[in-house]
Design a protein around this nucleic acid. Structure first.
Lengths: 117, 117
DNA sequence: CGGGATCCGTCTTGATACTG
DNA sequence: CAGTATCAAGACGGATCCCG
């Protein structure tokens, strides 16, 4: 928490190399489980993923649901707060497509990513 | 460079705690000089700022213009590539205003920040 | 004096091994 | 297979120095 600027505050939560990628997987790729996030091509490491999931849950952006008890297994889902990051992600995607070379919408990314808006 | 996903690629450039704050200062607060960035309430340190300005210039997001030769002094300005980050920043701002407590548009942020879109 | 570079201590990140 | 422990590497904060 560095100032009351909404951009600075948002960046305290989202401003790192991995958080928005996890949210991308939840929002556009349909992933919900730990192992699915690990399989993404960017290869997040296990401790970083666990820590980000924890922080995102604490921030109220995702929710953890048990779908099995023995052994306990969880699914992660976006809350409304998380779903409302869609326009933001969409702009990140559009900018990347326009300005960064060698980008393409991976098949995993549903087209709504860019179409939306 | 981690995959061809435009989100991942964009995050390679923008995904850290400071880069988008510098761009915020350039885009909405009208800052152009080194010392002005240093004065922002988030208190970026000098080495980080210098390094980010260099990376942003290399990425083609900002340009450095000498406005004085002795001693040499520079102004930094957004390129078109940088200006096109406006919708992205705008979404970051809107999300923060809606979901992060104690945020308010600082007077320094022109209202277009949010109105735009 | 203002724009940076450099150095150093600390905190964060990340790769990997490991545990239930 | 989900998550933790460990430890190395990198990012960061802050002070200081340097140069025009």
């Amino acid at each position: 928490m560095r100032s009351t600027c909404p951009i600075a505050q948002s960046l305290d939560i989202l401003g790192d190399r991995w958080t928005l990628l996890v949210i991308r997987d939840l929002m556009f790729v349909g992933k919900t489980q730990y192992g699915e996030f690990l399989n993404s091509p960017e290869k997040i490491s296990t401790n970083i993923l666990a820590e980000r999931l924890k922080r995102l849950e604490q921030a109220g952006i995702i929710e953890k649901q048990a779908y099995q008890n023995n052994p306990p297994r969880y699914e992660y889902h976006l809350t409304q707060k998380g779903r409302d990051l869609r326009p933001l992600l969409s702009e990140v995607c559009k900018w990347g497509l326009e300005y960064v070379e060698d980008t393409q919408i991976p098949p995993s990314l549903k087209q709504e990513t860019v179409q939306k808006n």
